[in-house]
């Protein structure tokens, strides 16, 4: 079993109201999913903005580990190493349809 890593979670402006305004939060976890669990434990309500009911990353949220989109890796199962940076970025999207 993978060991826990201490990582930095980068919080985007719209989610900082969950983190008392902090833009960087240190948590521990072996995977992206673990880190999100730890984040939710400290700042209740934030995970709902990131994952849906089935635990998958929401369509209009992207997670980056050291600048690499986890959708191009193993999603929430993407392993974390000590010192990694996990960035959460809600989409800027819309359009003239409808």
């Amino acid at each position: 079993m993978a060991s826990e890593s201490t990582v930095q979670v980068l919080i985007p402006t719209p989610l900082r109201r969950f983190t008392d305004g902090e833009s960087r939060v240190e948590v521990s976890g072996a995977t992206v999913g673990d880190a999100l669990d730890a984040l939710e434990a400290r700042f209740p309500g934030i995970d709902e903005r990131v994952r849906d009911d089935s635990g998958q990353i929401r369509r209009f949220v992207n997670l980056f580990v050291n600048g690499q989109n986890v959708r191009d890796r193993d999603g929430i199962a993407t392993p974390l190493s000590p010192g990694d940076e996990l960035g959460i970025i809600p989409a800027m999207a819309g359009g003239s349809a409808a």
Binding site: T13, N62, E85, I89, A91, M92, A93, G94, G95, A97
Partner: peptide, 28 residues
Amino acid sequence: AEGNRFYEIDPKELADLEFRELPNENAE
């Protein structure tokens, strides 16, 4: 985004701005 009636900012560009470039510049 695909087609002519939607937009989605490349999340990688957005992440680089939000977490790296703009904090470095003391901007938001």
